[in-house]
Nucleic acid binder design. Structure first.
Ligand SMILES: [Mn+2]
Ligand SMILES: [Mn+2]
Ligand SMILES: [Zn+2]
Ligand SMILES: [Zn+2]
Lengths: 153, 153
DNA sequence: TTTGCTAATGAAAACCATTTCCATTTATAA
DNA sequence: TTATAAATGGAAATGGTTTTCATTAGCAAA
């Protein structure tokens, strides 16, 4: 249910947040992009269509979106946070990442997600019971060298 | 083989790094601690025994250790990097994390269900073949609310 | 042991992503 | 339309991390 074009509006109000032009445009950029954008990159894209947006508002909106579970914040090791919408209805859907520690390239993958999903379900259940921990989300990243960076060795 | 008390010395030299007092003390702190220390926390602990250490050197040493695979750098969302030695011979050994998004508490777990280890192996193999990606390490974190933070709701 | 080369170091300054401050604007319910 | 509090933008502050540079120290060779 989270974040399709018809859902976020309602979810926003539920949580007591106002729907503003800036927030709409930020969500629009996030849902349309295929990359892993930083706050500044999001700001620049929004700014193309809506010049009065401020970088501060971008940061604040990203916080809001993450706090209500519509957005996931990543640290890929390049010194700035990067963001990706959480949307099961998105063509990308939930996926995990391969992170090249050399060139910082990010590879999305969801090929093996079936088995992984099954295991994740089990693991999450076991963990939440043992540690009385309420799991809301997870992060799985594999670090190493992409094919190109293996060659330059 | 990475990082037992007898191994890191050799690995250091192999990689062309000099063995210095500061580096020894930093490694000592890292191998003895049970927590997830930040650069400043490491600096303070080392400083107790070796006053002439500088924070800059701590940062530089942490980079070196991470680059040769003796140390893993984490982002738990509290605005600073945190570090943990990678050491199979350590009493803690390889483990994953539960991260409370409310109080920032970190729970280590290594009581993997059997399938978890096996699936990881399979996944890593499949991914490295399909994407020609050489996997060196992985990061698995579950985000949510710890038992205490569930109550304060 | 001594020497020479170069990596390593510490302190201060710079960097820069993110946050805070605050005066102004705007969404929204009445 | 109005009142009220949330949201906003720009400037300044913050603070973790990196860079700079003059000095120190590890270590291979003699
Ligand atoms: Mn992705
Ligand atoms: Mn841990
Ligand atoms: Zn690469
Ligand atoms: Zn908690």
């Amino acid at each position: 249910m989270p974040c399709n074009k018809f859902g976020w509006h309602g979810k926003f109000k539920e949580c007591g947040y106002r729907v503003t032009v800036g927030r709409k445009e930020i969500l629009d950029v996030l849902t349309k992009t295929t990359g892993h954008l930083s706050a500044e990159e999001i700001y620049l894209k929004v700014h193309e269509k809506y010049q009065s947006i401020g970088l501060t508002t971008v940061y604040r909106t990203l916080d809001v979106l993450a706090s209500i579970g519509l957005l996931q914040k990543f640290d890929f090791g390049d010194g700035r946070a990067r963001y990706e919408i959480i949307d099961a209805t998105n063509e990308k859907g939930h996926h995990h990442h391969l992170v090249c520690t050399e060139c910082k390239r990010i590879i999305d993958y969801k090929d093996f997600i079936d088995e992984e999903v099954e295991l994740l379900r089990k693991t999450e259940k076991a963990l939440s019971e043992k540690y009385k921990f309420e799991i809301k989300n997870h992060l799985i990243q594999f670090y190493g060298l992409c094919s190109e960076c293996q060659e330059h060795r």
